[in-house]
Nucleic acid binder design. Structure first.
Lengths: 270, 270
DNA sequence: TGCAACTCCTTACAGCATAAAGTAACTTCG
DNA sequence: CGAAGTTACTTTATGCTGTAAGGAGTTGCA
């Protein structure tokens, strides 16, 4: 389930994002507002954190506030705008200050670690589409942070801009695997171990020639066999964690290599 | 919209995946089957290719075959299993042979290019969850291909396994940006250019202090400004394409660095 | 000729976003 | 002080979704 940014009235959504719910309190006729944009956004985040993106419905958010779904439409133009606001609000949690004294590489690793933890705290954020982004203040704040950290590598602006994308895709992708693994557990009640055990047994039955058909995979699986580090953390989650750690090192190595090439003066020889 | 793999009867789904719809033709009482698993899977792929994952409904697939939605349940246990079959079937399109004579790096770049094109031909594939994977024959075939190609780098199995994950996350992530950008266009009719033009105008109104608040981003945007290469390809799509190209080079550099460290004998010093 | 098996259809249900219309509360103006 | 106008919120309704339940019609074998 990918959820797309609101494509309606740009002026209204951007005002909600950048100027908060109200630009000055209202004082006209009619009953006093019992809700606020802020309260609705907060309730939306609570629902999404607790039950996931699929459970985020206008009914659910309204219910949490003691209202019907339709009551929310007084404050928020549509579900898409509500999600934009939730997304930008929750991004405020991310730190912005990273010590560059120990080098950009350590700072970048720390940022990636914080972002990873953030995505796992709010896994629904991974389902917000990245094309045609929300363009809220906290999205730019996060971007400013990453760009500042990676600027230390001394890449030309052209490369820097794309490397930021690479880092985002990588962190989001690995975090998503963990998020989906957790979702599968809560949805089915079957642990990663039990799932894998059952599946691989059936796999052997159904494809007895597996090792002949896929020799390289078979060899890698046996030689690079996974070592359980922590019995309390599910199998697939530990795998994803190691992909994150090893992959991050590889990505940072790659950035260093690109920077080195820049210094040697032939930054365009990709 | 992430769609998860079927979690039902493992034996039945795996048999469908590995042994085709029927293990031997049926010859008992009752009317002759008018459909087949193959035909249903093909129709599903057609729907998903043409209208996207969100439009893939049992009703839509049935309609394409001149049946009702419920007719499909005679052949396929549920929508989740149908999607597993669609996923594995469509993966058969990917090439498996890459010439390693020119080095693993060129082969890996070629594979990434083919995978990127594949994902953009079938963007709905990007919405199939990667945790608790489908485990079909073509998924393993693709994995075998990638592992074979990357084996050329001489990484230890432990690292190789994780690097495969990195490469997948990266290719899928960049392709997804393009897929979502295209989706946004067909869904709204607004081009990337028009969208960005309208949004950035409002952004200036609503955040006049943008350059002070986000100086590093502002500097990167102006220095690394995007140069339109091809007027016929949308803006965000060209951006994503460049992230793919630059990012791929960085990732392959990183793999080379990891391999070099391995040769020097301290592969674990990440 | 029955009977069992099988394909396929109709109907039904709960849940989704949101349009439209109605009710009640509140301020302001005459 | 009462009417008018504005606003908060509710109810109702529409067309989607996956799939459970039950029924109709077709076929092969006893």
């Amino acid at each position: 389930m990918v959820v797309y940014a609101a494509q309606g009235d740009a002026r209204r959504s951007m005002a909600l994002l950048w100027q908060g719910g109200a630009a000055g309190t209202r004082s006209g006729p009619g009953p006093k507002p019992g809700l606020s944009v802020d309260a609705i956004v907060a309730a939306g985040i609570e629902v999404a954190d607790a039950e996931g993106m699929a459970a985020l419905s206008m009914r659910a958010v309204g219910e949490r506030l003691g209202r019907t779904a339709m009551a929310l439409y007084t404050y928020v133009p549509s579900k898409a705008e509500l999600l934009d606001l939730m997304y930008d609000r929750v991004l405020a949690e991310l730190p912005t200050e990273y010590d560059l004294a120990a080098g950009w590489r350590a700072a970048a690793a720390n940022w990636a670690e914080d972002a990873w933890a953030f995505y796992l705290r709010h896994p629904w954020v991974l389902q917000v589409s990245q094309a045609r982004p929300v363009l809220g203040p906290n999205e730019y704040r996060m971007l400013e942070t990453v760009v500042t950290v990676l600027s230390g590598a001394g890449l030309p602006a052209y490369v820097l801009r794309r490397v930021v994308g690479l880092l985002f895709h990588f962190v989001r992708g690995t975090a998503q695997t963990v998020a989906e693994s957790r979702h599968a557990f809560t949805a089915t009640g079957v642990s990663d171990e039990d799932w894998w055990y059952a599946r691989s047994a059936v796999l052997l039955e159904v494809a007895p020639d597996f090792a002949q058909r896929f020799p390289t995979v078979t060899r890698m699986e046996s030689e690079g066999a996974f070592q359980m580090r922590d019995e309390t953390v599910p199998y697939l989650e530990q795998e994803a964690r190691e992909t994150f750690e090893v992959g991050l090192a590889v990505v940072l190595d790659g950035i260093e290599a690109a920077a080195r090439r820049t210094c040697e003066g032939n930054s365009e020889s990709l």
